[in-house]
Design a protein around this nucleic acid. Structure first.
Length: 239
DNA sequence: GCGACAG
DNA sequence: ATCTTGTCGC
């Protein structure tokens, strides 16, 4: 894939990061750029971390899954040192270098990217899924496993049935949706990344829910893949 | 000083 | 995110 990126890698201070977030935030467009019937495949993105000799490393996996058959049609990854620390609200700056490095290796151009992490559901509407869309230039969806509190607002717990959900509305604006993807498990936090609306994001996400996990298949597979990669690289990277 | 904190 | 065994429950 042709990836256009710039500033994300040169951000050093929190102020510079905030400035970039504001600039990109102004360009968010939650209108769907793709029709539901034109979606042929979907990519899942995840990153895993580990430490060796005091140095942090990360492995990113992108797994592309066919929409109809749910078979894996492509799988790429990237591995390397991670120098950016994790700061709540700035996850994108830590994960994007590896994510974009992996995305460049894709032969297929996925119709949509599903991220392990939030998108529009973020204090500045700039979670990793939204941030990434500006460089991938593709629709993205955010899927978080836990809630990052915004302006002190809590979410309403959806009822315990598959597919039940509650929208997360703050100051009259819909930030995202808490979804119970399976009965008897904790809900996930869905939100638009960019170039796609929340209802289509929900349809897409639920389409990829199977009995194996509360996470949609593409994200689940990327999650498993990063764990394999870590097992494979952690010993060999050291001396 | 204390609590909160996507991954 | 990651460090980690067994164990309670459907």
């Amino acid at each position: 894939m042709d990836i256009q990126y710039i500033h994300t890698f040169t951000m050093q201070t929190k102020e510079e990061c905030r400035t970039l977030q504001q600039k990109l935030k102004a360009q968010i467009d939650l209108t769907s750029r793709v029709k539901m019937t034109h979606i042929h495949n979907c990519a899942g993105v995840d990153v895993a971390y580990w430490e060796e000799n005091g140095i942090s490393y990360g492995a990113c996996s992108i797994v592309v899954v066919d929409y109809q058959t749910k078979n894996v049609v492509e799988k790429v990854h990237s591995v390397g040192e991670v120098t950016v620390p994790y700061l709540p609200g700035f996850l994108a700056f830590r994960e994007l270098p590896l994510i974009l490095e992996a995305a460049k290796k894709l032969q297929i151009e996925p119709d949509v990217f599903l991220f392990d992490g939030n998108g529009y559901l973020h204090c500045e509407h700039m979670g990793v899924a939204t941030h990434a869309s500006f460089f991938l230039n593709k629709p993205t969806v955010g899927i978080g496993k836990s809630y990052l509190k915004i302006k002190g607002h809590d979410y309403v717990m959806p009822e315990d049935t598959e597919g039940a959900y509650e929208d997360i509305v703050i100051d009259g604006e819909v930030y995202g949706r808490v979804v119970r993807t399976a009965k008897g498990v904790k809900p996930i936090f869905l939100s638009c990344g960019n170039y796609i609306d929340l209802d289509m994001s929900y349809q897409l996400m639920m389409h990829f829910i199977s009995k194996e996990s509360k996470l949609p298949i593409p994200v689940r597979l990327a999650d498993l893949h990063t764990h394999e990669l870590r097992k494979r690289y952690r010993q060999s990277t050291g001396k």
